[in-house]
Amino acid sequence: MLKIILLLKWKSLKSQLQYPANFLIAVAGISVIGVTDILLILIPTSAFETIGGWGFWELGFMFSLWKMSHGIHQALFSSFWGHDNLVRNGEYDRFLVRPAHPIWQILTSGFSIGAITEWLPSVTMFIITSSQVAIEWNVFNILFLLIILFSGAVIEWAVSLFISGFSFWFVQTQHLRGTAHTFLFRAMHYPSHIFGRAIPFILTFVFPYAFMSYYPTHYFFAIDSRIYSDFFPYATPLVAIIALAIGFAFWSIGLRNYQSTGT
């Protein structure tokens, strides 16, 4: 199945490159966003030194972890963003008459330009910031980093899959997705512990995005977690598995409802 996904991504990339000007403008446009993102960290820290005890480099490192994970998500899992339309346009009528599982078919249904645009800014950010913070790199660290990055992408996807489940009942779920995205795109620049009680709770237990970068950063800096458990800096892979199981289960219930009611 992985073969099909890679085949499709490769072919899509090839077809996008048929219009190189268009493609390059889109890549440049989204890379610009990569720059504005870092400004959300740079400007407050240039005025106030630290946010919640962390300086620019620490925050930049944390954000680059998130952004690389997000890049993996965009490359592999982002076709679920348009799940509303898949249901509304009756695409499931075609997914369900093919031998592959619908989830595989959705993963192979499209190609987002974000698959490439996140990589340049995030990896650059990671290389620069990780040289400015005190981290001793060893084989174990690097292995853990790779696991964290992939697990983070799975966490983002798990939430997306969970939200997708709602579109089997409701026509429009964009703003529900948008609510999750507000946490994803606006709260990940800053350490969760500055936000009082409600937001860290949501980022840990509802949309567990804090496990993409906030908690793992504690591991790399070898510091204790300020909120909840000291185990959380190691918990990302486990959270990814649990979140995916929940997301998948809910989506499956939605699909069963679709098959019996044909919404």
Binding site: I4, L7, K11, S12, S15, P99, A100
Partner: peptide, 19 residues
């Protein structure tokens, strides 16, 4: 059921892998 932006032949290849 075809992939909109890809050449027709690519859709056949992907389906062949799927089946």
């Amino acid at each position: 059921q075809l992939w909109w932006d890809l050449p027709l032949i690519d859709s056949f290849q992907i389906l062949s892998a799927m089946y």
